[in-house]
Design a protein around this nucleic acid. Structure first.
Length: 261
DNA sequence: ATGGCTTCATAGTGAAGA
């Protein structure tokens, strides 16, 4: 099973990129963040024509998440249960027997701001919920835009970013708390190139200079981590005209979930 | 370089992102 995550920064603008990426890469599931459109605008029929199904949770202008998949998605959950949230940041579904939890973690704006507090509260709530979900769904993948660079090696200039939002200790502690639930950061299960990032600012020619952060992650529960054979960041879409500022992250799982195919 | 892009909402600029 091939599963991927991609913050597309507007699905309306990026639909051509998404369609060509699906055609070229044939993932079994692609999780999107920042689709930035209401559900009535979601391009479901276009995706059907491309051979994909989808479940989605969108809103006007901001946020919005979706799971695009080949097999029928089941048991769909919208948002973190018991966390009242106007912002559409989580969707979960079962695909090929694997529980897929697609998240768009709040950005946090700046350390100490209201949005930063919201980010930490959101992550606390996610953690509490996932603790239960892992009992129910041992084969669970948590993936999306975490808006956290877990370690200094995930930051192009750790000194310049020290203490900043996206790298601050409380945020990194939340990431570690998720790992302590048994999740493995699939990217770090394998040898990776130095200076691997998944996001680059649109400004300052940041991509060409590889001034990036690794903010997008695929976390695997222990039973799934055992089956993982690769995890890579696909920089190709970031090189296209009118790209998203994020690149897709892709993981390959072994036989799990491929029964009957 | 505290934003030097990009998107969305909106009707000339402002918010938000990371």
């Amino acid at each position: 099973m091939k599963i991927a995550t991609w913050n597309v920064n507007s699905l309306k603008v990026r639909l051509p990129h998404v369609l060509s990426w699906l055609a070229a890469n044939q993932p079994d599931a692609l999780c999107l963040q920042e689709i930035k459109q209401e559900d009535s605008q979601f391009p479901l029929s276009t995706l059907h024509e491309a051979g994909y199904q989808a479940v989605f949770s969108g809103q006007k202008a901001y946020n919005g998440v979706a799971i695009i998949c080949k097999s029928a998605p089941g048991e769909v959950v919208y948002g973190i249960p018991e966390f009242a949230d106007e912002q559409k940041r989580l969707i979960a579904a079962t695909v090929d027997g694997i529980r897929v939890v697609c998240i768009y973690v709040p950005n946090g704006q700046s350390v100490g701001s209201d949005k930063y507090q919201y980010k930490l509260a959101w992550l606390d709530s996610l953690h509490a919920w996932l603790k239960e979900e892992l009992q129910r769904y041992p084969k669970l993948v948590l993936l999306g835009d975490f808006n956290i660079a877990p370690e200094d090696r995930d930051v192009y200039d750790p000194k310049a970013w020290e203490g900043n939002v996206l790298v601050s200790e409380p945020e990194r502690a939340e990431f570690k708390k998720l790992e302590q639930l048994g999740f493995k950061d699939s990217f770090r299960q394998f040898e990776q190139p130095e200076k691997s990032y998944s996001w680059w600012d649109y400004r300052m020619m940041a991509f060409r200079r590889n001034m990036g952060l690794r903010l997008d992650h695929i976390l695997l529960s222990a039973p799934l981590a055992e089956t993982c054979t690769s995890c890579t960041i696909d920089r190709a879409p970031r090189k296209l005209e009118q790209p998203s500022d994020h690149a897709p992250v892709v993981a390959e799982l072994g036989n799990q979930g491929c029964i009957g195919r």
